[in-house]
Design a binder for these strands. Structure first.
Lengths: 345, 345
DNA sequence: GAGTTTACTGTAAACGTTTACATTTTGCAC
DNA sequence: GTGCAAAATGTAAACGTTTACAGTAAACTC
């Protein structure tokens, strides 16, 4: 299975290896006649360029790494689809790094770029503050990195980003619950290190505050971004002495757990409890009842993030383009059936 | 951002580059004293080996490609987790190739290995017969390929594989429905080119035949492996003049669509219609009602597939170990609440 | 202390490309 | 045909490793 090399092709075509190389990379610099000879030789030998040698020589792998909490979450699946679309169009491959199951540190991640294993990084998951510090330190604004989905942490503002306005969206979601007459609203949020859900929590708190509604102790519970976690969180919420009539879950995944948990103790949704999700994943429309939620253009975000990263990579490590303001994309409230007026007491 | 090279380290440590290389790859061959000198130099320069150069020189990328229909399906997410576990342990990175959204042909896939971009391939998705032919032709038993989850197509028996006995499992599922008293049982199957679901269909037909139950025209419907497809399929099934009292869905994903579709036209599950799934994804336990389904050890399959691939890669392209019998893993029937006796007529 | 093994280190080639530079060929104007 | 510019091609170095081989130093054996 030894593959033919460029040398073999050159020999057969009766030209130098430089000419063969040119045939593939800048065909306009080589005459019609020789191009045909070389083409024939390539066909005859079944030559494919050794990508390893190319990458080595060019100093580029055309591989980018995506760091995210979990590809299991259908929201990220959609983002990934966008990233992949763009990557295909631009000739890049993707390596995925799940922070949830993988202990790769920021140092190691940076090392992958530094050691040239990867041309750039897409961050869909906030890392520990320490981690982000490492990244921005290592970078000296040099690692091509783009942040997606999340508001960018202060230490990370050196990197460009693409996302919705999570604070505004969460405010909108909370205000919708308020507009339906709820005053006692609970929150199932993500882990403390998830900026994304922190922002949503912030939006919720802002909305409650503006509406002059109080948030009692025990109304904000960590659901850990998983179904299981949300089941536990809901149980705790429902056992509260002064329990909420509505729950805002900062992801659909957790809303699914919440729905299940509430129903399993005999509550009807939305009659006894209203549930609001976030993300509008493909499951949101088929839960029972279908979820009222916030929709994000996940695939579009993925595409834009990837294209942005390509720009970072292409324009090279020197020119710090300067314009790193976040690209904001639009979200949308999707009204389905999991939210209703609270029952009269 | 020019990274220090081995030469720089050698210069600082006052040794040859060969010694530096040995320090990293076979430290036992170098004296304590020089090892320390070199370590110091590495620290001082912040040297990281250029992985591109290493890959090039070694002729190995430590990257493997996984071909699957869609990472969106939570079942495959679990398989991927297993693959990733094993890959991490063995020092490999993963590149994912979704056939559903990607038109990469078998030729191109093979090319990735031939051109050394990838050390091996894990096939979780059957490809078109043509595609598999290309792969086995290209291979001359040379491409390291392992098939996972699926029964191996006849043309692919040259490759090792890891999966459950899909036929037996589907038979078991169908027999369970029969044991609960159902005689009119429908099937929502996958696309025609999905061997996996073909096998399950085969198991269903075998069970029905052995129980001397007929399968009417229109009882077997293609659900396209998606929620949407299953919703349509269910609608068609329920409109059947002699409609089934139970439906076996060959994936949980489709069972979710089926559940939703049935309930949306006012049927109660399982009172009016029993629904059986397959895969036991993380959503199966939280549907309403929770799904009775077949559980596969997805993560274990992933791990075993990856370890098997490592063996294929390591033992090299020459020795055709010969033992390519499928590794079978155990499945299990999970009884929840979506199946009951059929209502008396 | 000579001879022999062992442990360590250095030299240099090789991996398959790309590309700056030098050289040759072609095309064109006169 | 001569001269000259433009186009096409060849030569050879370079990219950063690994590794076979040769060489040297250290550690034994007698």
């Amino acid at each position: 299975m030894t593959t033919a090399s460029i040398k073999e092709v050159a020999r057969i075509a009766g030209v130098s290896i430089a000419t063969v190389s040119r045939c593939m990379n800048s065909p306009d610099k080589v005459s019609e006649k020789t191009r045909i000879k070389v083409q024939d030789a390539i066909l005859k030998t079944g030559y494919t360029p050794n990508t390893l040698a190319q990458s080595f020589r060019r100093g580029r792998t055309n591989v980018v790494m995506v760091v995210l909490p979990s590809i299991g979450d259908p929201f990220f699946t959609d983002v990934m689809r966008g990233i992949r679309n763009a990557a295909d169009a631009k000739g890049y491959s993707i390596i995925i790094n799940e922070t949830q199951f993988n202990t790769m540190t920021a140092d190691e991640i940076a090392a992958m770029v530094v050691s040239r294993q990867t041309d750039g990084i897409i961050l869909l998951a906030s890392m520990s503050p320490f981690g982000t510090e490492v990244l921005s330190a290592k970078s000296h604004r040099a690692l091509p990195i783009v942040v997606g989905c999340e508001t960018v942490a202060p230490e990370l503002t050196v990197f460009p980003s693409v996302h919705i306005d999570n604070v505004a969206a969460a405010k909108e979601a909370t205000n919708y619950l308020i507009s339906r007459g709820h005053t006692r609203i609970g929150l199932i949020c993500g882990a403390a290190n998830s900026l994304l859900t922190k922002d949503r929590e912030f939006g919720y708190r802002a909305a409650m505050h503006e509406a002059e509604l109080g948030i009692e102790d025990g109304w904000v519970v960590n659901g850990d971004l998983t179904i299981e976690g949300a089941i536990r969180a809901t149980r705790s919420l429902l056992n509260h002495s002064h329990r909420p009539t509505a729950v805002f879950c900062t992801t659909d995944e957790m809303a699914i757990g919440c729905l299940h948990s509430a129903k399993s103790v005999g509550m009807r949704v939305p009659a006894d409890l209203s549930v609001m999700g976030f993300d509008d994943t493909r499951y949101a429309a088929v839960t029972d009842p279908p979820l009222t939620t916030i929709s994000q253009p996940a695939t579009e975000i993925g595409e834009r993030v990837m294209y942005r990263l390509c720009r970072e990579i292409e324009q090279g490590r020197q020119s710090s383009s300067g314009d790193n303001r976040p690209e904001l994309v639009a979200h949308r409230l999707i009204v389905r059936e999991s939210v209703a007026e609270p029952a009269a007491e």
